[in-house]
Simulated scan of single mutants.
Amino acid sequence: MATPYIRMNGAGNDFVVVNALETAFRPTQEQARTLGNKATGPGFDQIIGIEPSDGADAFMRVWNSDGGMVETCGNALRCVGWLLLQSTGRDAVTIDTLGGLTTARRAGPDQVTVDMGRPRLRWDEIPLAEEMQTYGIELQVGPIDDPVVHTPGAVSMGNPHVVFFTDRLDDGFVRGTGSLIEHHPLFPEGVNVGFAHVLAPDRIRLRVWERGAGLTKACGTGACAALVAATRRGLTGRRATVEVDGGELQIDWDQATDHVLMTGPVETEGTGTLSL
């Protein structure tokens, strides 16, 4: 049976979105991996299922291009939020995920603000395999006496992240280091690996090696994690523009609520059908 989908992107993060509100959509890991490969399917960074929810307007389920199911995706939340905002005509909707409940609000033409909730900063919330402080964890890449990168911040935004602060952002370095760290034993659930260059107290250049998806043009939860990690180190204020390969995201770690708000673009690219 053919399953219709919408292709969308959020700051370049590439999604295939399936309406599963009435007809269940649960691909196996092998099926999701086949669909995610452009040689055998439409190809995507993540495939998204919009499902019914008892406690929210919808439930968002996320599979990476390697076929693995993950907790959440910030840029996908904006895309799903935009679809729900358009279909309901409301100014705010709630979306549940495996990583927790969030709210999406209109922020202008094709712009959506998502409340990503409170960043989780304890070692066992991220999670790490052993107890340690998380603003700079005991991890380095390269020689012991002269590491290339070291002491990243660790943050969970509903999914695990480490953020290295460096001006090394070339493809080879990000791919090599990211793939090395993604399955490091310190991270029992794997980890998204961010490489952040702080350009100013209110601007960060970021590239992310996403767990299960590799190097993508944008990572919304990664942008949130980078701002939180930078703020904790005193490198930025609590609000900054995060430059990713696909555009810019506005991240605000609200002091009053301790929630991280992410504002960014949504684009609809077309439609198609999937065959499982």
Rank of each mutant, 00 (worst) to 15 (best):
3 T>P: 00
3 T>D: 04
5 Y>N: 01
6 I>L: 15
15 F>L: 09
16 V>A: 04
19 N>L: 09
20 A>K: 03
21 L>G: 07
22 E>D: 15
25 F>S: 02
26 R>M: 13
29 Q>W: 07
30 E>L: 11
41 G>H: 06
49 G>C: 12
49 G>D: 11
55 G>T: 15
55 G>A: 15
58 A>P: 01
60 M>L: 09
61 R>F: 07
65 S>L: 08
66 D>F: 09
68 G>P: 08
69 M>D: 13
71 E>T: 06
71 E>D: 15
72 T>K: 11
73 C>S: 11
73 C>Q: 04
76 A>N: 04
78 R>W: 05
79 C>F: 03
82 W>K: 12
90 R>I: 05
91 D>I: 07
93 V>Q: 01
98 L>C: 02
98 L>R: 12
98 L>A: 13
102 T>D: 02
103 T>M: 08
103 T>Q: 10
104 A>S: 06
107 A>L: 10
117 G>M: 05
117 G>V: 00
118 R>P: 02
123 W>E: 04
127 P>I: 07
130 E>A: 14
134 T>H: 03
141 V>Q: 11
143 P>Y: 08
143 P>V: 06
146 D>S: 14
150 H>L: 15
152 P>G: 11
154 A>W: 02
164 F>I: 06
171 D>H: 12
171 D>V: 11
173 F>W: 04
176 G>M: 09
176 G>C: 06
177 T>C: 13
177 T>M: 05
178 G>K: 01
178 G>I: 00
182 E>C: 05
182 E>M: 06
183 H>P: 07
183 H>Q: 14
191 V>G: 03
192 N>D: 11
199 L>Y: 03
200 A>L: 13
205 R>G: 10
207 R>I: 01
208 V>T: 03
209 W>E: 02
214 G>D: 05
217 K>E: 15
217 K>F: 05
221 T>Q: 12
224 C>V: 04
225 A>L: 07
225 A>H: 05
229 A>C: 08
231 T>N: 08
232 R>K: 11
242 V>N: 06
248 E>Y: 10
248 E>F: 14
254 D>N: 15
257 T>E: 13
264 G>K: 07
264 G>H: 03
265 P>R: 05
267 E>V: 08
267 E>Q: 14
267 E>H: 08
268 T>I: 15
270 G>W: 08
271 T>Q: 15
